[in-house]
Amino acid sequence: MSGEEELRRRLQELPGPASRLDVDAVVERARKRRRPKVAAVTAAATGAGVLIVAPFVVPGLSPMSPSSTVMSDQGAAQEAAPEQDSSGGDASGATEADGSVALACAYPAIRAETGIEATFTDDPADGIAGVELLLPDEAGTLEVLGVGIAQVAVDDPLTIVAAQDLSVLEAAANAGSTTPGSEAGSVTLADVVLPDGPLLGCGIDAATAPAPLLLIELEGRRLAVVGDAYPVR
């Protein structure tokens, strides 16, 4: 290549596509993704196809837990006007930095809060990953509203080293299409496009592994929770 201008010229000489995109197909697929994603939580004995069955047995949350506090401050307003927000997918946190960090470092573990296990099915480093949810025998209805990333300590997966702010998660609303797993109580969210928002550091120096950060609605209660660590080689 004789020069950068020559390379630019040669690249720009390459012609455009032979046929056009199907806009109707794109709109239809996007519509499907925009519908609320409801994962039916059914134990083997309850039978398939029933969305609302017996409620989960969920350990009660402390009224002062971070997720509860966050929801009372922000969740209600966003719920009231979910389509009014024009900030979009990469909206950074609008909350004060210190408060955001404190909240991001204190998301409860989904396993401890609900008995549900959640892990990435592949490395989320490229911005797209599946999330597998393993649900307990108790049946109920779980809605996954958004998926982001947290980094947890390899040696202590309950310790959050860095995590995305809740506003990033709320803005993303990105949960992909749900695909029932082969086993009862297993649900996989396939190819979720993860939000780009920065991770807020928690001031902990430790080797980390990515874990899904989930915004869920369970029995009418919105929670931001952290799943289990993805094994990083």
Binding site: P17, A30, R33, D85, S86, S87, G88, A172, A173, N174
Partner: peptide, 24 residues
Amino acid sequence: DEEEARDMVQDALAATFGRLRNGF
């Protein structure tokens, strides 16, 4: 590959507009 590219763009459009809120 143009065919693969077309699939990739359709996927990207569906995924992006599947999560973008109004106002864009």
